[in-house]
């Protein structure tokens, strides 16, 4: 059963008709954790706003839980939870007040669905009388999630919930999402962090309003066509320069402490490459085959 269906959805902005979302189609299954992965300006927020009925599409159609996003907007507003890009809380209300307010707006009470948010709320409960504006980024994000969940939505839309949040809070946040998924809530989440993509059931890689690929993270990684090497040397900058200049290089770029590279010549040996690099004054050279990540795939898609 499909929870969310997009059919050639299009959105253009302004006088110059800038295309933000360019005929995007995809389906999200019920209970799925679906990720929209892409940099700023890829069109993720516009898609979220159209699906949550606060923005009208300029073409195509879409449904959420079977309801049309244009005609049945009232019904959709009853059943979805939405956390916009900016954490939308009242900074001058306390944690508890924010939660109670959103519960009432959604015609429910905190008690009624407490078990749904319990895991998350417990972590911020000791600050319940603190004003939301005085919370740290990670705490705010947890509170915003509680507020978006309080009415037990069928579909949860999270627009870049982890942007600007430190790695520890990000990891905790994804653990919470995984637990929510067990409650049969469909979750659509967007993020600019590629490392978060592998935690989704399926992902859509987006760039400039277009979808580059929709797959499970495993399949995206598996479909990577080239053999990928991780290479290290004493000087990263020099390594990158020399790799880019190497005639047999197909792709090469920095990747953490290593440079990742693929080659036009499948038969290329590690010795051959080592010699080349040594010849250009590099030392401490380490070359190994490495596993492909989503980020590698994204870079590959961007370059093609």
């Amino acid at each position: 059963m499909q929870s969310v269906v997009l059919n050639n959805i299009k959105k253009v902005y302004g006088k110059d008709q800038k295309i933000a979302v360019d005929n995007v189609s995809f389906d999200v299954n019920q209970g799925e954790l679906f990720g929209l992965i892409g940099p700023d300006g890829a069109g993720k927020t516009s898609i979220f706003r159209m699906l949550t009925t606060v923005l009208l599409p300029d073409g195509g159609s879409a449904t959420v839980e079977g309801f049309d996003i244009v005609k049945d907007y009232k019904k959709i507003r009853n059943i979805v939870g939405y956390m916009p890009g900016k954490f939308s809380l009242y900074q001058d209300l306390t944690v508890a007040e924010n939660l109670h307010f959103f519960a009432t707006v959604f015609e429910t009470t905190v008690e009624e669905n407490y078990d749904l948010i319990k895991d998350i709320y417990i972590q911020i409960e000791k600050f319940k009388n603190r004003r939301a504006g005085k919370l740290s980024g990670g705490m705010k994000q947890k509170l915003a999630l509680c507020c978006a969940l309080i009415h037990k939505p069928a579909v949860l839309f999270l627009d870049e919930p982890t942007t600007g949040v430190d790695p520890v809070s990000r990891r905790e946040f994804w653990e919470m999402l995984k637990r929510l998924q067990e409650q049969k809530i469909t979750i659509i989440v967007s993020t600019p962090y590629m490392d978060e993509a592998k935690l989704c059931d399926r992902i859509a890689l987006m760039q400039e309003g277009k979808i580059l690929s929709i797959e499970t993270p495993e399949n995206i990684v598996e479909s990577y066509p080239d053999k990928l090497y991780a290479i290290k040397a004493n000087n990263m900058h020099a390594l990158l320069k020399n790799m880019a200049a190497y005639e047999k290089t197909l792709n090469s770029y920095a990747f953490g402490e290593y440079a990742h590279a693929s080659f036009t010549d499948v038969a290329l040996t590690e010795n051959e490459l080592t010699e080349y690099l040594k010849g250009h004054g590099l030392s401490d050279i380490e070359i190994k085959k490495t596993e492909v990540t989503i980020e590698d795939c994204f870079i590959k898609l961007l370059k093609s």
Binding site: R49, T52, T53, V54, K74, R77, N78, V80, Y82, M83, P84, G85, K86, F87, S88, L89, Y90, Q91, F102, V105, F106, E107, C147, A148
Partner: peptide
């Protein structure tokens, strides 16, 4: 401005 209106719009209220 703060985006709370966006959340309120997506509510039955």
């Amino acid at each position: 401005e703060t985006g709370t209106m966006e959340v309120l719009l997506v509510s039955p209220f």
